[in-house]
Design a protein around this nucleic acid. Structure first.
Length: 375
RNA sequence: GGGGGUGCGCCGGAGUUGGAGAGCCGGGCCAGACUGUAAAUCUGGUGACUACGUCUGAAUAGGUUCGAAUCCUAUCACCCCCA
């Protein structure tokens, strides 16, 4: 039965163990979902993603609509066929682009008019259109079309934007209800907004909860606000979201952010940090972040990370990886991306084990201390 | 051996035709940032020091001049042409 099942809740804190059943397999939660905006997790092959035990990857509706086009993906038989990935896929709706491409879009009641970052052409995204495109793409999990607000955000704007996101949510759901039925196998996730205002967050969480979807998402965080505010808002929202439904904190975050939010009852995470920062030379390890481009690694012939679950990180040296970065070789980006994903996926797999043994809270405290302030 | 040309900061380029510059554009190098990916990207730094300032500086050494990267002399280096 497609949906979310809660398996276990910690005796201290709110960390939970759960399972999402999708049309293309089961996902054990808490889960970290690697981001593959353009139908690829940058520099990482599907084979390696599978070896690292990635349970699900993301795609992006806006970017896939622009290139190669949702119709072409439909023609290929859907995103799984197109990219030859047979495990679950989640597509973000384009709501994040309302935030990240704020210089090239205009919001109205009807939807959002974007200018393409590719060629400047105009494209209109309504909630119905964003949902229809996600049906074409054919991911297992699809997102409501929302407005991700920036930080800081004035109360008046946050309130008005949240209400708009709610109206858009109703339109997405109306479209799904009256649509072609292609969505039968897709899990639809509504998104809580409300910026950094507890009253708005509560109102939005209650509104979203009333839709009784199998999974609910928290959006509009990790957009530049201090971590304590992110934690506070997350706590504030999870308090009003139903226990027996999945919870997805969108766009989060650092390893520390993820552990703190698992502890607050979140089941799903996605973030570009492990892959983007990898390409920029930042590697996550149990001892903290290292920047492999730094001169101090020039003569360090020790393994990149002897504890990594990635054999590349155990077998290649820091000096070699630094060299690959300094001469701009693709293998460097590949090793680093795999390293960081291995770390994130190892961390969340550990988290699941610790919850299973009901030791998550104390384990988290220890590892967060070791990860250090920079994470 | 003779003639001509060019010399500045880690490298390359531009510019400077007597009123100066620790200055421009690339690159390299050294750091930093990045959270539902316009991102193999972006930002800053890169002579010295007693450091929000001061000093040294246009191949080297002299000279002319109120003033020289610019003009003159010598030397050195490199490039081109002739033998």
């Amino acid at each position: 039965m497609i949906g979310f099942e809660l398996l276990k809740t910690s005796s201290t804190g709110n960390a939970r163990l759960g399972q999402i059943t999708t049309a293309n397999g089961i996902i054990n939660t808490p889960v970290f979902m690697p981001v593959g905006t353009q139908a690829t997790v940058k520099h990482v092959s599907h084979k390696i993603l599978t070896e690292l035990d990635a349970q699900i990857i993301l795609g992006n509706t806006f970017h896939l609509y622009l290139r190669p086009g949702n119709k072409l993906i439909a023609q290929a038989g859907g995103i799984h066929n197109f990219m030859n990935w047979d495990k679950p896929v989640l597509t973000d709706s384009g709501g994040y682009q309302v935030y990240s491409l704020s210089e090239m879009r205009k919001i109205s009641e009807e939807g959002v008019s974007f200018r393409s970052p590719v060629d400047g052409s105009k494209h209109f995204f309504s909630p119905e259109e964003a949902t229809r495109i996600q049906q074409d793409i054919g991911a297992d999990i699809i997102m409501a079309f929302d407005e991700c607000t920036p930080y800081p955000c004035a109360f008046e704007y946050a309130e008005q934007s949240m209400k708009l996101t709610h109206r858009w949510l109703d339109r997405c759901m109306g479209y799904l209800k009256n649509g072609s039925g292609a969505s039968q196998n897709q899990i639809f996730i509504p998104i809580v907004q409300g910026s950094t205002y507890t009253d708005l967050r509560k109102e939005s969480a209650l509104y979203v909860a009333s839709k009784e979807c199998p999974i609910n998402a928290i959006g509009g965080l990790s957009v530049g606000e201090p971590a304590p505010i992110m934690y506070e808002m997350t706590e504030n929202v999870t308090a009003y979201l139903p226990e027996n439904k999945g919870r997805y904190l969108m766009g989060v975050g650092t390893p520390q952010n993820i552990l703190e939010c698992i502890d607050r009852g979140v089941d799903m995470f996605d973030c570009v940090l492990p892959t983007r920062n990898a390409r920029h030379g930042h590697l996550y390890t149990k001892e903290g972040v290292i920047n492999i481009k730094n001169a101090k690694w020039k003569n360090d012939f020790s393994p990149i990370d002897p504890d990594s679950t990635s054999d590349m990180s155990r077998n290649y040296s820091k000096a070699y990886l630094r060299h690959l970065f300094s001469v701009n070789e693709a293998l460097g980006y590949q090793i680093a991306s795999i390293h960081n994903l291995a770390f994130y996926l190892w961390l969340t797999s550990q988290a699941r084990n610790q919850i299973l043994q009901d030791r998550f809270k104390s384990w988290k405290g220890g590892i967060v201390d070791r990860l250090g302030q920079r994470l």
